[in-house]
Simulated scan of single mutants.
Amino acid sequence: MNLAASNFIFLMTLGLPHAIFIFYWKFTYTDSDCRADLFLARSSRGLAICLTCLLSCFQCVTLASSSVRWLYFKIRLQKYLTPVIVFLSLLSLTSSLNAALYPVAYYNATDNHSFSLGYCFVLYPTRFLFQAIGFITFSRDLVFVILMALASTYILLILHRHRKQMKGKRSSERKQEATAEQQASKTIVTLVVLYVFFFGLDNSIWFYQIAVGEAFKEITDIRHYLSFCFPTIFPVIILLFNQKLQNKIGPCVKTQLSHLQAVSSIQ
């Protein structure tokens, strides 16, 4: 739920204004609007990375060995899950404070330590500050992406080992052994693979921009498009893999369709 909320905020604060601007719909932003919008966008994006990493690490610990050490770690992680989420939220907010300092609504020129969103501009006082903030953000994202990739790789190894153990059993027994933890693991691995792909490309472009010191609008548009892909695909993946949601949503959809058919027949 927290991951879905952070993805939704990101799409509403950066995806929606960007789409409106691309399609030439005119709207007016003030400096305060730009700062609030970009601060929420950066914070929600950072929180989405942190929570995806937490999700993969939590599932990795859940499937890990049942030794005393791992059992203790599982209990502690479940007990302090809410404080961990709060800590990650605060980390995302504090590490994105720079997004509330430099955005402006109007700017006539461009230089090598600023970048344009079209409807807002982010002006850093110096090129050093532009590159320093960029490298710090890049390093933060890279740490979490590496952690989630390692956790997902370990989950895949566990699933592969379990699959080899299940080869000698009948298909009916295999279905019984297809536990909720395994289904959740497949969902999380799928999410992480997509996340690493899209945000890996996004961060690679961002690294190029801060290394070169130039943020061309066309390259920025491509980077933003890549960053919008995962929040857009995220709910589709959840619906495809979550049988409980399908069982709840399916009857509602059928009821609505039958109601529409009844109304249309009456008309």
Results as ranks from 00 to 15, higher is better:
T28W: 04
T28A: 10
T28P: 00
Y29Q: 11
Y29L: 14
Y29R: 07
T30N: 13
D31P: 01
D31R: 04
S32D: 11
S32A: 15
C34Y: 01
C34S: 04
R35Q: 12
R35C: 03
A36L: 15
A36E: 05
A36Y: 13
D37W: 03
L38K: 05
F39P: 00
L40P: 01
L40M: 13
L40Y: 12
A41P: 01
A41K: 04
A41N: 04
R42V: 14
S43T: 14
S43G: 02
S44R: 01
G46W: 05
G46K: 07
L47W: 02
L47P: 03
L47S: 03
A48D: 04
A48W: 04
A48E: 05
I49L: 10
I49S: 10
I49Q: 06
C50R: 10
L51V: 02
L51N: 05
T52Y: 04
T52P: 01
C53W: 00
L54M: 11
L55E: 04
L55F: 07
S56P: 00
F58E: 07
F58M: 01
F58Y: 09
Q59Y: 15
Q59W: 13
Q59K: 09
C60N: 10
C60A: 09
C60S: 12
V61Q: 13
T62R: 12
L63W: 00
L63T: 02
A64R: 05
S65N: 12
S65P: 00
S65D: 12
S66W: 06
S66N: 14
S67V: 03
V68C: 08
V68Y: 10
R69Y: 06
W70P: 00
W70H: 14
W70S: 11
L71M: 14
Y72L: 12
Y72H: 12
Y72S: 14
Y72C: 09
K74L: 05
K74Y: 02
K74Q: 13
K74R: 10
K74F: 04
I75H: 14
R76G: 04
R76V: 03
L77Y: 03
Q78R: 15
Q78L: 12
K79A: 11
K79Q: 11
Y80S: 06
Y80P: 01
L81I: 13
L81D: 04
L81W: 08
T82D: 03
P83F: 07
V84W: 12
I85N: 05
I85P: 03
V86P: 01
V86W: 08
V86R: 06
F87V: 15
F87L: 15
S89H: 01
S89I: 06
L90V: 14
L91G: 01
S92F: 08
T94Q: 07
S95I: 09
S96T: 02
S96H: 04
L97W: 10
L97V: 12
N98V: 14
N98P: 00
A99I: 02
A99N: 03
Y102D: 07
Y102E: 02
V104N: 01
A105S: 07
A105R: 03
Y107R: 14
N108Q: 11
A109Y: 13
A109T: 15
A109S: 14
A109W: 11
A109P: 00
T110A: 13
D111P: 00
N112D: 15
H113T: 08
H113S: 13
S114I: 07
S114K: 09
